[in-house]
Design a protein around this nucleic acid. Structure first.
Lengths: 145, 145
DNA sequence: ATAGCTGCAAATGCTTTGCAAGGCC
DNA sequence: GGCCTTGCAAAGCATTTGCAGCTAT
């Protein structure tokens, strides 16, 4: 009854990630812990399903692509991630769920955070009847100078 | 040699759309005129390929879906349309190419223009070395109140 | 034990492409 | 006539789904 969860080779030493998942109502499975470690282990990140999947494989954790998609959406539902609709073709997920915005380099497809406190948006018209503002996305699109 | 172009039942009476296409370097074919009429005949619009395609069919003009896609992209290249990346799954094209922004109703998928002069964005950080700002997209996401 | 997860492969939905036939200048 | 366009069907991608087997509690 003492050392129940210690078995993985990842950095979730104190079970912090397990706890975080549990509090979100998600079972801390091997796959979810592996993905959570990749996502939250090293500062703010922007990932696509494909990239996260190959990172998991590279890290020696077998996770199917379908599970990566499921997990990204589940994490998004419980507020651990934010989904970004920037590029059309593929979906990006942002580990920084606080209020902030993005530079998007149209040629490279690169995405860079802009701290939430630097940009201010003024002059918003009243939202239409029966709706309220969920949030405001500002994407500053860049091209080569 | 007199009445060469008059044959279509659309509203391009004076051949204005033909001229507009020609000036953009696109031949004014039946299909492109039909789509241009739908797009530019009635104020600012946001359309998906699918919607435009069925409108064309309803209007009695046969246009293949592939041609709708081709045409939307060609119009975008020559600046007649602007492509919007708002929703991930499908691409929207905006007939209003001037500087303005959008309300997006996340539940309905509805898109509403915000006049370009009402919103002001302050506090933009310097763009990264070697890049310049192409444009800034502001999407105000709405949910049911 | 059992409700929840995962993996595989098939299916889906939007978009693009290849290529032969047709249309505009 | 010659090059641009179109249409069809097939191919392509990212993503989702169905379902049998596995796992955390």
């Amino acid at each position: 009854m003492t050392d129940t969860v210690v078995e993985h080779k990842d950095e979730d030493a104190g079970g912090e990630l397990s706890e975080r998942l549990r509090q979100a109502g998600l079972r801390p499975t091997r796959q979810r812990l592996a993905l959570a470690t990749l996502l939250f282990g090293s500062g703010d990140r922007h990932v696509s399903a494909e990239v996260l999947h190959s990172e998991a494989l590279t890290a020696g954790e077998h996770v199917s692509l379908a599970t990566v998609y499921n997990t990204l959406h589940q994490f998004t539902e419980v507020g651990l991630l934010r989904e970004l609709a920037i590029d059309g073709a593929k979906a990006y997920f942002d580990t920084n769920t606080s209020n902030h915005n993005h530079f998007f380099h149209e040629q490279d497809g690169e995405l860079i955070d802009i701290p939430g406190n630097s940009i201010r948006v003024d002059g918003l018209p009243q939202p239409p009847e029966g709706t309220r503002i969920s949030h405001i996305d500002v994407v500053v699109r860049l091209v080569k100078a």
